[in-house]
Each structure stands twice: as C-alpha cells, then as structure tokens.
Simulated scan of single mutants.
Amino acid sequence: MPRIECVVGDLTQQDTDVVVNAANSSLLGGGGVDGAIHRAGGPEILAACRELRAGHLGGGLPTGQAVATTAGRMPARWVVHTVGPVFSADEDRSELLADCHRNSLRVAAELGARTVAFPAISTGIFRWPLDSAARIAVAAVAEADAPGVELVRFVLFDEAAHAVFGAALDA
C-alpha cells in the first residue's frame, strides 16, 4: 500500500510522476481542475487528448475509467485523466468514484510511476459531498493494486477540504 498524505496546494505544480485530472468525458478541457491542468500543461496535453479522441476514445472517456497523456509544461511527467461521476441523491455512484481512483492508480503503475497526486474528484461542479468523497477516495487508494506506487498525495484547494481529507486518513 502506498503512503497517503494530503496537502493544501496547487495540483498543477506538484513535482510527482503523475497528476490525476478530474476530466470531463470529452478530454478536451473544461473548468475547474480540468481547465487548470490544460492551461498549466499547455497545448501538448490537448494535442494528446485529441489523438486519443481520434483513436479508441472517439466517444469520449467513460466515467470511472482512466487514460494517460503527457503533462506538457507541468513538473509532473504524466497526466492521468479520469472522469468522475456526478453526485446523485437517488442513485449510489460510489463505486464509480472509487473506480476513478483505482483505475488512475492502475494506469500510473503501468507507466512506472512512484508518486501520484490526486484532486478531490467530483467535489466541484459534480457536487459530490466532500466528506463522502474523501472516505471513498482514501479507501480506494488504500485498497488499490498499484505495484511500484509509493506515495499518493491528495492536493486540496483549501484548509477546509484538507481537514476533511485529513479526518478520512485518520479514520
């Protein structure tokens, strides 16, 4: 199991092998984390995503799945893009959120990554409650089969999110 930590910071500035992008299914950029990663990484990320869309991901990336591209101009070597589920009070989509973490770590391990930085997937515009997302994310990472991954860092936007993820780590 990798060592798991949480920090307040800028995901795009993490000096890790992999930065995980909370992408939209088009892989062509968007708002929030996705937009920040595309801006920080530059046109190389968009070009790589367009290649994926022109190939086997013509219909977009399905929710819970993950795929890697270059990190462009960011300090990381790769970006692993994953599409988080939209929160629903009527339908339990927890496994899809856990899949985002498991599949991102699987892809990272296949790349030979030792260090991975995650955002709080689905907690922005997809409205997933932060405490639930933190519990699911920490449990999925702790249980993931990711040979060679030594460190997983959750990079949170503010102190409030950091406190929630910290509590999930302590539980």
Rank of each mutant, 00 (worst) to 15 (best):
V80S: 12
V80K: 12
V80R: 13
V80T: 03
V80A: 10
H81Y: 14
H81D: 11
H81P: 12
H81R: 13
H81S: 13
H81L: 12
H81K: 11
T82I: 03
T82D: 08
T82N: 08
G84P: 09
G84C: 06
G84S: 10
G84V: 09
G84Q: 09
P85H: 08
P85F: 10
P85V: 01
V86N: 11
V86G: 03
V86W: 14
V86L: 15
F87K: 01
S88P: 13
S88D: 15
S88R: 15
S88L: 12
A89M: 08
A89H: 15
A89R: 15
D90Q: 14
D90T: 14
D90A: 14
D90C: 03
E91N: 08
E91Q: 14
E91K: 10
D92K: 00
D92G: 00
D92W: 00
R93F: 06
R93I: 03
R93G: 06
R93N: 13
S94L: 08
S94E: 09
S94D: 09
S94Y: 05
S94W: 02
E95W: 05
L96Y: 05
L96K: 11
L97Y: 03
L97T: 02
L97H: 01
D99R: 14
D99Y: 04
C100G: 01
C100Q: 08
H101D: 04
R102D: 10
R102H: 11
R102Q: 11
R102F: 11
R102S: 04
N103A: 04
N103L: 03
S104Q: 06
S104R: 02
L105P: 00
L105D: 05
L105K: 06
L105R: 05
L105S: 10
R106T: 14
R106Q: 14
R106H: 12
R106Y: 07
R106F: 07
V107K: 07
V107R: 14
A109K: 06
E110G: 13
L111T: 07
G112S: 08
G112L: 11
G112H: 12
G112V: 10
G112M: 12
G112C: 06
G112R: 13
A113D: 08
A113N: 05
A113I: 01
A113Y: 09
A113P: 05
A113E: 02
R114F: 08
R114H: 12
T115L: 11
T115D: 12
T115H: 12
T115I: 07
V116T: 07
V116C: 07
V116F: 06
V116H: 05
A117T: 00
F118D: 00
F118N: 02
F118P: 00
F118H: 02
F118M: 05
F118W: 01
F118G: 00
P119L: 01
P119E: 03
